[in-house]
Amino acid sequence: MADTTAPLPAAAKRRRPMADLKKQPGFNQIAWGCIFILYAPIIVLIAFSFNDNRSVVLWTEFSFRWYVEAFGNEGIRKATIVSLEVAAVATVFSTIFATMAALATTRTQPFKGQTLAYAIINQPLMIPEIVTAVSTLAFFSLIKQLTGVNGIGYLMLAHTVFCIPFAYMPIRARLEDMNLTMEQAAADLYAPPLQVFRRVTLPLLMPGIVAGAMLAFVVSLDDVIITLLVAGPGETTLPIYILGQIRRGITPEINAVSTLLLGLSIAFVTLFFLLGRRRK
């Protein structure tokens, strides 16, 4: 009995909580500094999108004037439609491929080269985007020359490809923490593999798929570098249009469009998190 109490002081010492990081000098200042640098420009952007004045430095009066003008602007309207079309197509296909890839890497016997498969699927995340962009441009030019086929399909294809890893991550995460016994229970209850997938795997996987699709949509909507190089004439997406306009000076109209784009992205990301939370 006596010797069990002896090592107690040492144990107590080990149990003492780590020094609280929040109490370190300067912690608060640095944290607030970072948050300020991150969000101040965005707040300025949002504020001046409601400014009834051509200036982006002088505040005069609140108004929706720039939103009205943005909606009336043919260029912005066309770019928005192109952006949504490309994002929609890229989202659908990248999500389908990502789902198949996620199933193949989690619902099969471990196979040789599985790590390599992960690496290949996630490749677009690791290679600098400019490299992907340049190589895609060269590759597509070659195909265009050989086949003579042009069109927005190339841009959609490029977006689909770089969206796959983004869609893949939440789907695979969901599959990994989905209990395998659920699918075994279905098989045990006379469901052949296809029915197991349709009736059990797919419905349970849905939150992951939706999260993946939303992530892919946002990533496609925001892309600049690859789009800039791959997009042909008449295939200007919203970010590219904004970029073009900004070269001629910032206008409050661009602020308004950017604010809308931001709102859309926030809406999607929030939904993504809510769905992620609901699965727990």
Partner: peptide, 13 residues
């Protein structure tokens, strides 16, 4: 043959 699983494995949906 049917199984009653240890963690029940009921379909949550």
């Amino acid at each position: 043959v049917n199984t009653v699983f240890q963690n029940y494995a009921l379909f949550p949906h």
